[in-house]
């Protein structure tokens, strides 16, 4: 079904014709792909050889996010990061695959990729790289609320809890 979307961008009116079917298929595909990416990354950190270590990353100097990273380096905060990163990746992956709290999961995915991307010291692979593309994919999932197609969020949004609190849709979707 073709939908007409009317919008105003910087004062100029536009009409977009959008296929609901194609958009729906693409959003599910995007969600499952990105979800599996993060679920796989998280599980690998549990089953792979050796414990996941974050020290090398948190101690980086000279990056855009170094002041924040360095504040968490060493001691209990570093140990906490080493627990949170694999668990977070698994939860983000599951959230996207099942379409539960999709926007929240995608937000934390984007949050992690923000640090991975801006934690680069030399930009040897250029400024447009895999981390940036991942960040953009997460933002795309947030923008479209991809969990509303074939996701648990499509059911959650019909409940009275969400109907009475429309702001919750910013966390679902």
């Amino acid at each position: 079904m073709i939908q007409q979307l009317q919008t105003t961008i910087l004062g100029r009116e536009y009409t977009l014709e959008l296929s609901g079917t194609l958009t729906g298929y693409w959003l599910v595909f995007l969600r499952l792909l990105v979800g599996w990416w993060f679920l796989h990354e998280g599980l690998n950190k549990y089953v792979g050889p050796g414990r996941f270590r974050a020290g090398w990353f948190l101690e980086k100097t000279g990056t855009v996010v170094s002041p924040v990273l360095n504040a968490f380096a060493g001691g209990a905060t570093e140990a906490a990061i080493e627990l949170v990163v694999p668990a977070g990746e698994v939860l983000i992956g599951l959230g996207l695959i099942l379409g539960v709290l999709t926007r929240t999961a995608a937000f934390f995915g984007a949050f992690m990729l923000f640090f991975f991307y801006f934690g680069s010291e030399h930009w040897r692979r250029g400024l447009v790289n895999g981390e940036l593309m991942g960040l953009v994919l997460f933002v795309t999932i947030i923008v479209f609320g991809a969990g509303r197609v074939w996701g648990v969020d499509s059911y959650l949004e019909t409940t009275d809890l969400v109907r009475n609190r429309p702001w919750l849709r910013y966390l679902l979707g």
């Binding site: 855009v64 996010v65 923000f114 801006f118 680069s120 930009w123 400024l127 960040l135």
Partner: peptide
């Protein structure tokens, strides 16, 4: 510098 560009991009995000 890549660092300057990265700061501009980070500010945008």
């Amino acid at each position: 510098t890549p660092r300057l560009r990265a700061h501009v991009i980070a500010l945008g995000f």
